[in-house]
């Protein structure tokens, strides 16, 4: 597992987001084993306490489960994948709307701009 991160945002949250993203797109499947804290720390070159914090938080969120002496696993809960996709989708849309609003566009303008953008991308038509 590789997570690209910047350091202007808490690293443990970026690790959690990395796992969420992977679960949402199916790169990690329910019940799949994830690296040990020490392994991930070495791989990301991040302090092991930071990884520990991320794993603890993911357990609280029900995203992963740690079995004593066996390791940490993605939750078996299949519905979570759907929830994560919805969450990601909402974030993308909200970020986009916030960015457009910051540029001074109203709702109607935004809809029109999206249609125009789609037409250009698809060679003249909205599919």
């Amino acid at each position: 597992m590789k997570i690209d991160f910047s350091t202007s945002f808490p690293i443990y949250l970026q690790i959690i987001n990395g796992f969420k993203r992977k679960a949402a797109v199916g790169e990690l499947v329910p019940g799949q084993k994830i690296p040990s804290q020490r392994e991930l720390a070495a791989e990301l070159k991040v302090n092991v306490n930071t990884v520990q914090r991320a794993y603890r938080e993911m357990e609280n969120l029900g995203l992963v489960r740690t079995l004593r002496g066996q390791g940490t696993y993605m939750t078996e809960d299949e519905s979570l994948v759907g929830q994560l996709r919805t969450e990601m989708l909402k974030n993308v849309v909200n970020d986009f709307l916030a960015a457009m609003a910051a540029l001074g566009y109203g709702d109607e303008d935004i809809l029109e701009l999206v249609r125009t953008g789609m037409r250009q991308k698809n060679g003249g038509e909205v599919r």
Partner: peptide
């Protein structure tokens, strides 16, 4: 370090 990143919205290096 993580608290400082949150408070400042910056890396420690910044």
């Amino acid at each position: 370090a993580e608290d400082l990143r949150t408070e400042h919205g910056q890396s420690i290096n910044d």
